[in-house]
């Protein structure tokens, strides 16, 4: 059974943390289709988080098609989150770009800050696809 860890000081909304951690578990293969997610009550009891927040997260996951709620039984994983695009060429391009950035004199932290800025503008908050 997946255990959520809520970091109240991270600046990320609590329900998003639950969504992200569920996706992470799916990605790492810790959750597979047919697995049951903890009931909202169990999550609340373990994390002392507002029940609404948990419901919101589960609804979000349901909207993305990752889980489905079966009345009286619980919430179950519907599909995995494997990468469906081939990342090989993308990764090679990125490595080439990183080499260029290093030659231009950018340090590791500068590159990380640039990447974060680009990610923020490409994937605005809340969107993962």
């Amino acid at each position: 059974m997946i255990a959520y860890r809520i970091d109240r000081r991270s600046g990320v909304a609590t329900y998003l943390q639950i969504v992200q951690q569920t996706r992470q578990a799916l990605r790492l293969g810790l959750l597979e289709p047919g697995d049951k997610l903890p009931t909202a009550r169990e999550v609340v009891e373990a994390t002392a988080v507002n029940p609404n927040t948990v419901l919101k997260a589960y609804r979000e996951l349901e909207r993305e098609g990752l889980v489905e709620a079966r009345r009286g039984l619980g919430t179950f994983v519907r599909r995995t989150l494997g990468p469906d695009a081939d990342t090989g060429p993308l990764q090679a391009e990125l490595a080439e770009w990183a080499a260029r950035a290093r030659k231009a004199g950018l340090g590791r932290e500068d590159v990380a800050a640039l990447c974060t800025a680009v990610l923020d503008s490409t994937y605005p908050e809340g969107e993962d696809r």
Binding site: E42, E45, A48, N50
Partner: peptide, 11 residues
């Protein structure tokens, strides 16, 4: 206790 409280209240 907060967890228990919230769970009971929600139920």
């Amino acid at each position: 206790l907060m967890g228990t409280l919230l769970a009971e209240a929600a139920e």
